[in-house]
Amino acid sequence: MEKKLLEIKDLYAGVAESGKEIIKGLNLTINAGEVHALMGPNGAGKSTLAYLLAGKADYAATSGNVTFAGQNLLSLKPDERANAGLFLSMQYPVAIPGVSTNNFLKHAVNAKRKYMNLPELDAAEFLKLLRASAQELGVTTEMLKRELNVGFSGGEKKRMEMLQMQLLQPKLAILDETDSGLDIDALRIVAEGVNKLHTSENSLLIITHHLDLLNLIKPDAVHIYYDGHIVQSGGKELAEKLEQSGYKSFVEA
C-alpha cells in the first residue's frame, strides 16, 4: 500500500520580499520509500523549491499547500521541519567560522534526539557514532576538527552534507545538486549514501543535471521541471532523452 510522505498541490511561490513568482503551479507527490529525480534548466526554480520546503525565510508560498508526513509543512519552522524528518543537502552549503564541525554535528544530532525525547549523547557517545559514519564517507578527523565548511573544497562540502544526512536519518532527503562538482569516488560515495538511506520508509528527492548519479541509484520517477512547474514525468528514460536532445524537446512537446 502506498503511503504519501510529501504532497505538493498547486503550489505558487516566490521571493518573499519582492513577491517575484518563481514556482508556478507545482504538483508533486512522493510516497514513502520512493526516490524521485527532478531535472530542469538553470534558473528553473529547483533550489527555490528546495529552500521553500526547508523553510528559508527568503521565499514564501502565495497559494497551494504542502503536506509532509501528515503535517502542514509550510506552517512549521525550519528546525521543526528538520526534526520532523526533512533534510536538505544544499547546493551551496554555508560556512560557519568559529564553530567546529564536530561541535556543530553534535548540536544537530542532539537537537533531533531532544525532539524524539531521547537523552542527549555525551561527547564520547557522539564521537563513536560520528567516527563510524565519517569513515564510510571519507571524512577525516582533521576535517571534523576544522570550522564547519570553512575552506572546505566543493567536494568536501558535499561529503559533509552526506555525513549530516547519514547522522540525521531523515524521512525525506532533498539533494540539491549534491552530485555536482564531485570526483568519481565522491559520486560513488554519494550514491552509496543515497542507497543506504533509501528504505521502504525513507524517500529522496534528487535535484540533478546529470545522468551519472541516476545510473547508480535507480530512481522510481523522473520529473522534468521548467519555469516553475513539472512539464513531464516518467521513468529514467526521460533523463536519457534529456541527455540526448536537451530541454527543447520537452518544452515544445
Binding site: 525550519p78 528538520a82 556543530f104 548540536h107 544537530a108 537537537a111 540525521l168
Partner: peptide, 9 residues
C-alpha cells in the same frame, strides 16, 4: 538558517 535546517532551534 543552515543550523535551523539541521534541527537546531
Amino acid at each position: 538558517f543552515y543550523m535551523q535546517a539541521r534541527g537546531i532551534n
